[in-house]
Design a protein around this nucleic acid. Sequence first.
DNA 1: GAAGTTGATTCGACATCCGCACGAAGTTCA
DNA 2: TGAACTTCGTGCGGATGTCGAATCAACTTC
Lengths: 394, 394
Amino acid sequence: MAARYAHSTTPGGIYALVRDGLARSRADLARLTGLAPSTITLRVEELLRRGYLDEEGDGVSRGGRRPRVLRLARDERVVAGVDLGARHAAIGLFDVAGTCIVTRRSSIDITRPPEVVLRSVHREILDALAASNDAARRLAGVGLSLPGPVSAPEGRVISPSRMPGWNGIDPAAILSGLSGVPVRTENDANAMALGEFIATGRTTRHMIVVKAGSSIGTGVIVDGALYRGARGMAGDVSHTSVADGPQVLCSCGRFGCLDAVAGGRSIVAALAAAGVPIDDVAGVAGLASDAHPLATRLLRESGLRTGAVLATLVSFFNPERLVLAGVLSTTEAFVAGVRSSVYDLCLPMSTTGLELAESTVGWDLGARGVAALALEELLDPAAVDRDLGKSPRT
Amino acid sequence: MAARYAHSTTPGGIYALVRDGLARSRADLARLTGLAPSTITLRVEELLRRGYLDEEGDGVSRGGRRPRVLRLARDERVVAGVDLGARHAAIGLFDVAGTCIVTRRSSIDITRPPEVVLRSVHREILDALAASNDAARRLAGVGLSLPGPVSAPEGRVISPSRMPGWNGIDPAAILSGLSGVPVRTENDANAMALGEFIATGRTTRHMIVVKAGSSIGTGVIVDGALYRGARGMAGDVSHTSVADGPQVLCSCGRFGCLDAVAGGRSIVAALAAAGVPIDDVAGVAGLASDAHPLATRLLRESGLRTGAVLATLVSFFNPERLVLAGVLSTTEAFVAGVRSSVYDLCLPMSTTGLELAESTVGWDLGARGVAALALEELLDPAAVDRDLGKSPRT
DNA sequence: GAAGTTGATTCGACATCCGCACGAAGTTCA
DNA sequence: TGAACTTCGTGCGGATGTCGAATCAACTTC
């Protein structure tokens, strides 16, 4: 968070502090930026005059005069966060203040051509917008989360194992062409990490968020910002070998990859082989909640194996939080398995002070995260600086 | 590097740019900071007047007027970088410009009590200083690198497997008490990562440096700065389980840890068991350079196993460079093993653009890195800002 | 030797930000 | 029900810092 708001003394920086909910009054801003109250007054006045900020009325007193609460100026702009899974899409609409207007789920088939999938996504967005009972609202940006590697900074899909026909595609360009608004593409685990980071008040410095669903991936927060690595591939552990795991053939051609021995898809397959045919990963969780013995055992094993890889990552990365998200982590068995492995395989020095928790946000975690990404672009502090004719400070 | 020099428009920032060799002239500073040349003139003038900087004469022309080369003001202050291994200490003395005055190695026994070891280290530093033929020089700071986990920000040694009697110790306090100067403690792999980062011009954004010696550890550079994690434990992979490794009992009580199946100590033990008694890890490298079959095979296996863990880290962290350092990585067999594993186990998307190289710096890599840490404290940009009466900018 | 480049300085104009005093609007406690 | 204290926000003068343009300086190229 320190890193993220290093430039917070510019008008755009002040704007961002309000946008992200870190400051709600002029006094907050003065504290956070270190600027003199008088300076803040001038800056805020300008932002109010230009229509970037709004006053909401008085807040609660902290023992003295009540602060005058600031918020982003309400306007008609709306961003969509779209989290595409293998078979479902989660779509959320948010106003510029980041408040959720509506979320919905719909069925898709990610194996269909990008144009087809994205056209249907676009229709869903427009439909949700129309259903929101405010004709003035208009779409101003989209964040798109995909279940596969996305290169940075280009935003292209790179060799996705579960999305045939998407390799090398730039989905942002397609969806932007359909919708006429800027689109930001991100990997699903990264989107969830960002969503979790925001949901917990942007306070965690170093965090790993695990997306345990059909496949298993991680998103990484370093120093209060999403970490993408050199090419945007950071966090992709689905083809990591699991120590002591069974030598199952993986789609990548190797044996014993995490995805192949612990991913939700592998559990579905194992259940099917045992004569328990279910539709998808959600079905596994359903079975587990009914105390289905085999499903529970498979989930626990999946957790143990996932935990084995996470243990390595925890040792290496020494995060302060490790968050479990995704369908599998809604089951007690999986979570218990992860806990067991991590605490067994990590040295105490790595796990003391480590908070290992399940995400409290539900199925729209990724949509929220990727919407924040779109908002970030829409409400660009640098653009505010430009508008106010200030050169961005170092 | 962007992150490190985000505050570079303050006097201290300008000082740091010169200190770290990124700027050698006023024109360089103007380019790097974005400040107007006139502003740079004023700032530099102040720094010259205050005795922080010096002019060295003219540099080489780039097609126009020759730049007037700036450097840190020469003074009598010297910092020591001390890299303690299990049996040897590497000591380097550096002037404030970071120029190496002298390096030397000496024998130590890290299993002896901290006070004893550090007293001998202190004597060595004073001895080296006395031998440097400049009576005016005086010690002003020490960086201390240790072969075990060091907590951050406290700088205490945490459950080191090879340093009995050091647990919970604050070596900086002891050595500071002996020498009367500030001491900074750091883990050895972190020190090497910093040394490598500096030796390659501070240009790499995301990097993993592997210290492969008696034991195996990593140091991590994120966004151009040493990454320590939540508690300073980042990079410690010595007790990570190796996929498909032999189930050797490790000092931590588990089986198949990286240290136990690939660390130099394990190779020495394996050679001894086979009737090839050698002194230490350096002996293994010696044997390998004489094409000793067993030593070579063991080194290659060690490389393969180390590479297996590194493959996971590369997938997770997506660095732009992976650097091999330490005694083992001076052998072709070990390096070949690492390369083989990494390229076998990583997806191409993680290794395209990955530079996998051996460090070009020798045995004093860690000493250089940790000396830079001491210099950083000694030549604190914030102190310069304070001295010049400027408030540090955001 | 003229033209073009690069490096560095001078100086006036301008914008910014702070310090401080002050006003506004609360809470706490006798 | 005040008095004292706290927190929040504003107005104004002045110190400070930064920039821009012009200029000088010194070298390379042709």
